[in-house]
Amino acid sequence: MLRLAVTGAGGFLGWHVRVLLRALGWPEPTVLTRSDLADPAVLAARVDGVDRVLHLAGVNRGEPAEVAAGNVQLAAQLAEGLKHCANPPARVVYANSVQAGNGSPYGDSKAAAARLLADTGVDLDNVLLPNLYGEHGRPYYNSAVATFCRVLAEGGRPEVHADRELGLVHVTDAAARLAGVPAGGSWDPAMPALRISVRDLVGRLTEVAATYRTGEIPSLVDRHDVRLFNTYRSHCFPAHYPLPLPRRGDARGELVETVKAHGGAGQTFCSTTRPGITRGEHFHLAKVERFVVLRGSAEISLRRVGDTEVLRFPVRGEEPVLVDMPTMWVHKLVNTGPDELVTMFWTNELFDPDRPDTWPEPVEAARPAPVAVGA
């Protein structure tokens, strides 16, 4: 396990880096704040002896002059602190951009920042990142995917002002690449990209939203299907849940349609849970998971990794509803009734004991938390 220090830990990419490290049980990275960067002596002390510094902090939006100056200043501050460090890190990993050096204020400032970091004497891994997307991105800021998902989740229709091809990489793959996490689980540090036009992206997400509006699962054939769906779901939660399910009954009994999947793998199972017993206390990085209580009463509790607020959904078999677990949210199910609880679970993939994508963590009593997105 590497000892890491991170700038920009409260941003979109920084949060996903810390969630991945948390899932793997790596030590909490040292968080380098803007005030740390402003003081070379303090910064030098905080990075002393770490294996790797991930420089993720940057300025993406604003007036062109502010963007250009901000990216250069952050890199210059980090570089100065490294020069004062008695035991400097073995490597600096810079979250650069494929736009570096493209003639824009943003691109040229990112390229200039890389040159400053290269002059510190510390080995520099200059990673040119493409467009990143993923759960809990800020709309109108982090990516077009986040913007389109938010518009659709709110019932709107995204507009395409200029069509072009995008290369989209899921943020967990980028986090693995930057942190030096080897391939495995649901991530891929090779950062496989989805090549898609803006217009086709909007069409794909619009289909996802239309299918999911009533709880039906869209076609999830490949990993980008799953990750785009998870990204969209992150903009639906918690406002769209729980979703009521119709019950149909006759003299023979009752029927509840719990899952309608339009394509891809899937696994369904049922469990019984005794009164007072808890199931869950874990989170997933990529797996889609659905809970439907069919008999008895329960409480479903969820907490986003890095947050302290716990959301609670009381559910009863007499009024069946679906609650889909958002990725990177710790969740549990507790039988709150006096009788046995019957619950149906559905996941979008067959269970693989070698790659379960199930990361234990209690909902109520969390370890020291990653800085929340946007902090």
Score class of each variant (00 low, 15 high):
residue 230 N to W: 12
residue 67 V to P: 03
residue 206 T to N: 08
residue 167 G to A: 13
residue 120 T to C: 02
residue 52 R to W: 04
residue 142 N to K: 11
residue 162 A to F: 13
residue 259 V to F: 01
residue 122 V to L: 04
residue 337 G to L: 07
residue 144 A to H: 15
residue 107 G to F: 09
residue 360 P to C: 06
residue 256 V to H: 06
residue 138 R to H: 12
residue 217 I to E: 09
residue 342 V to Q: 05
residue 78 L to M: 11
residue 10 G to M: 12
residue 371 V to F: 11
residue 44 A to D: 08
residue 93 V to E: 00
residue 84 H to W: 13
residue 153 A to R: 04
residue 303 R to E: 03
residue 23 A to E: 03
residue 101 G to P: 11
residue 31 V to L: 14
residue 229 F to M: 15
residue 303 R to M: 06
residue 307 D to R: 14
residue 63 E to W: 03
residue 364 E to A: 14
residue 132 L to A: 00
residue 352 D to H: 06
residue 351 F to E: 07
residue 36 D to Q: 08
residue 36 D to A: 11
residue 224 H to M: 15
residue 174 A to F: 08
residue 300 I to N: 04
residue 48 D to V: 05
residue 196 I to Q: 00
residue 146 A to K: 08
residue 156 G to Q: 03
residue 327 T to N: 00
residue 135 E to V: 14
residue 106 Y to M: 13
residue 72 V to N: 01
residue 241 Y to K: 05
residue 39 D to N: 02
residue 245 L to E: 04
residue 202 V to W: 11
residue 146 A to S: 15
residue 111 A to N: 01
residue 80 E to A: 14
residue 267 Q to S: 15
residue 186 S to G: 04
residue 259 V to K: 02
residue 187 W to K: 00
residue 185 G to W: 00
residue 10 G to Q: 11
residue 18 R to V: 00
residue 188 D to A: 01
residue 94 Y to V: 03
residue 279 R to E: 01
residue 353 P to I: 06
residue 10 G to A: 13
residue 57 A to H: 03
residue 206 T to G: 10
residue 329 W to H: 10
residue 274 R to T: 00
residue 108 D to R: 08
residue 247 R to A: 04
residue 296 G to D: 00
residue 28 E to Q: 14
residue 264 G to F: 05
residue 13 L to V: 09
residue 164 R to G: 10
residue 19 V to S: 08
residue 118 A to K: 06
residue 69 A to H: 02
residue 357 D to Y: 01
residue 103 G to N: 03
residue 135 E to D: 11
residue 107 G to H: 08
residue 239 A to I: 06
residue 268 T to L: 13
residue 303 R to A: 05
residue 315 V to F: 04
residue 31 V to C: 12
residue 114 A to Q: 04
residue 23 A to S: 14
residue 100 A to N: 09
residue 190 A to C: 09
residue 148 F to V: 15
residue 133 Y to H: 11
residue 266 G to R: 00
residue 65 A to M: 06
residue 121 G to I: 01
residue 202 V to H: 13
residue 278 T to W: 10
residue 221 V to S: 15
residue 152 L to S: 07
residue 354 D to V: 09
residue 240 H to F: 05
residue 224 H to E: 15
residue 46 R to D: 00
residue 347 T to P: 07
residue 261 A to P: 10
residue 293 V to F: 02
residue 189 P to I: 02
residue 250 D to L: 08
residue 271 S to H: 08
residue 196 I to K: 06
residue 225 D to A: 15
residue 2 L to S: 14
residue 13 L to A: 05
residue 251 A to K: 15
residue 124 L to P: 04
residue 132 L to W: 02
residue 238 P to Y: 03
residue 12 F to W: 06
residue 99 Q to R: 11
residue 302 L to E: 07
residue 46 R to N: 00
residue 252 R to H: 13
residue 221 V to F: 12
residue 229 F to W: 11
residue 43 L to W: 03
residue 314 P to A: 07
residue 40 P to Y: 10
residue 135 E to H: 10
residue 242 P to L: 09
residue 63 E to Y: 07
residue 363 V to E: 05
residue 243 L to M: 11
residue 343 T to E: 10
residue 194 L to E: 01
residue 282 H to F: 08
residue 273 T to C: 09
residue 212 Y to N: 13
residue 242 P to S: 10
residue 243 L to V: 01
residue 43 L to K: 01
residue 257 E to Y: 01
residue 210 A to V: 10
residue 93 V to N: 03
residue 277 I to E: 13
residue 80 E to V: 12
residue 217 I to D: 06
